[in-house]
Design a protein around this nucleic acid. Sequence first.
DNA 1: CAGACGGCGTAAG
DNA 2: TCTTACGCCGTCT
Length: 236
Amino acid sequence: MSDPLLTRLTPPDVGKDLADRVVDTFATTTGPLGEVLVARSTEGVTYVRPVDDPDGFRAEYRRRLGRPLVPDDRSVPAIDARTRVDLRACSSFERDVLDATASIPAGQTRPYGWVAREVGRPAAVRAVGTVLARNPVPLIVPCHRVTRADGSLGRYMLGEAAKARLLAAEGADLDRLAGFTTAGVVLIGSDTTGIACLPSCHHARRITDAHRVPFRSAAAAREAGYRGCLVCRPGM
DNA sequence: CAGACGGCGTAAG
DNA sequence: TCTTACGCCGTCT
């Protein structure tokens, strides 16, 4: 009862919610695409997947997180970009990639190579794709905003159609982006400022038609005397 | 520990 | 334009 060692090792508030501290819980809740399965620790959401197969969810959870998972009978708040996440099970590279991805504004897109540069590993483009393919918390960390270098959407854990739906729902102009892809345009410059942006950067969208200058590569923009936008950091 | 495996990016056919 | 080949690199097995 008054074992000094036990007293020292036991946090003062461990009591009725002890179970909460050693097992994670899961339940269905709503996200931007409808119902999803969500697992949580005391620190935040640890895992999000489609409702398809709960058995696979639990198996995969155990394999990846290595923690027990029990059903949650409480009601779970809907998830969105503000939902707190618990990424302790991730490597530091994975966390960096997810953090950088989370910084992409709603309705905008950034290439995989952009994420690689942001985390300081400009050549790890493919590894970035691997991380996002396994994103433990899709819809919260918006990996649907990461596209290929040419502006095409690229693949998505929940299907390319879902990627398009999510972006459209956030206000992205997919037709406009597709137009740039078709034209081979990856940067938009303003000839009044000499600054070049990624096409979805909100600064790029403010450039008037008369002053908009399309570039097919960062090198082309640089050679034309342009510098990269400090906000979207196109890497040039 | 070596090798395989990708939501990539580019060049080349 | 589409396809293929290959470099790249963090993880997983």
